[in-house]
Design a protein around this nucleic acid. Structure first.
Length: 264
DNA sequence: CTGGGGATGGGGCCC
DNA sequence: AGGGCCCCATCCCCA
């Protein structure tokens, strides 16, 4: 698997959306419950009301987000020059409804990653937790975990990656064990909301609609990428020819294919 | 070759 | 502390 997001990134000043606002909004989209539930295994939470007022983040991009690319300096534009961006941030789609708490199923979740607390895991269930490597020292003496000097990495026994916290390791291990299985096609996923997104490929549900055209998307990220196609100013710019692209991948392809050098 | 949609994975943050 | 959700990133495929 080429993806390598497993290693903690350097400190990144991520924007923080106001989640509380998102959760307070009134429902507009809903999952098709009967169908979804039929496709979700017990571990998967039921459909949830989607949140219509959640807004897209500002399209002013921090260059840190795209170190190789050159995000256009939106911030340098006058406010009246970016009505499009403002408009794009006020879509009425939003919120995937990616998961919520299951309606307290009578039987415990099939996953071995249920709400077992770390503390109970640590002492007793650690060895039984699939994927966990050798018991870290601080688990045999929990007080040591608070001492930075004695901090020990938690290793994944599947790929030997190191994590500084048990929680991070447990989450990572899900990518090996894939406890969330699609009842329709059997495809397995590491997290319930990934499965829910996948289920939409079966249902055809596309709760994220573009306010500029009639297109709808099953995934919020894909809508966000699509919105770039409506934007006059693309986020990623080739340093050589100044041409802009809506996606970093497009910029990369452009560069890999050999930038002609001149503005286009 | 380019542009774009579809699908998916992972870390981070908030509750 | 853990779950849920968010955003970002990336690959694949097609027009």
């Amino acid at each position: 698997m080429p993806r390598s997001f497993l290693v903690r990134k350097p400190a990144c000043s991520r924007r923080r959306p106001n989640y509380s606002e998102l959760h307070d909004s009134s429902p507009e989209f809903t999952f098709q419950q009967p169908y979804d539930q039929a496709h979700l295994l017990a571990a998967i939470p039921p459909p949830e009301v989607l949140n219509p007022t959640a807004s897209l983040p500002t399209l002013i991009w921090d260059s840190l987000l795209a170190p190789q690319a050159q995000p256009i300096g939106w911030a340098s534009l006058l406010p009246q020059e970016i009505p499009k961006a403002v408009e794009l941030t006020s879509l009425s789609d939003e919120d995937s409804g990616k998961g919520s708490q299951p309606p307290s199923p009578p039987s415990p979740a099939p996953s071995s990653f249920s709400s077992t607390s770390a503390s109970s895991l640590e002492a007793e269930g650690y060895a039984a937790f699939p994927g966990l490597g050798p018991l870290p020292k601080q688990l045999s003496g929990l007080s040591g975990a608070k001492d930075p000097q004695s901090r020990k990495a938690f290793n994944c026994k599947y790929c030997n990656k190191e994590y500084i916290s048990l929680g991070a390791l447990k989450m990572h291990i899900r990518s090996h064990t894939l406890p969330c299985v699609c009842a329709t096609c059997g495809k397995a996923f590491s997290r319930p909301w990934l499965l829910q997104g996948h289920v939409r490929t079966h249902t055809g549900e596309k709760p994220f609609s573009c306010s500029h055209c009639s297109r709808a998307f099953a995934d919020r990220s894909n809508l966000r990428a699509h919105l770039q196609t409506h934007s006059d100013v693309k986020k990623y710019q080739c340093k050589t020819c100044s041409r802009t692209f809506s996606r970093m991948s497009l910029l990369h392809k452009h560069q890999e294919s050999g930038c002609s050098g001149g503005p286009r």
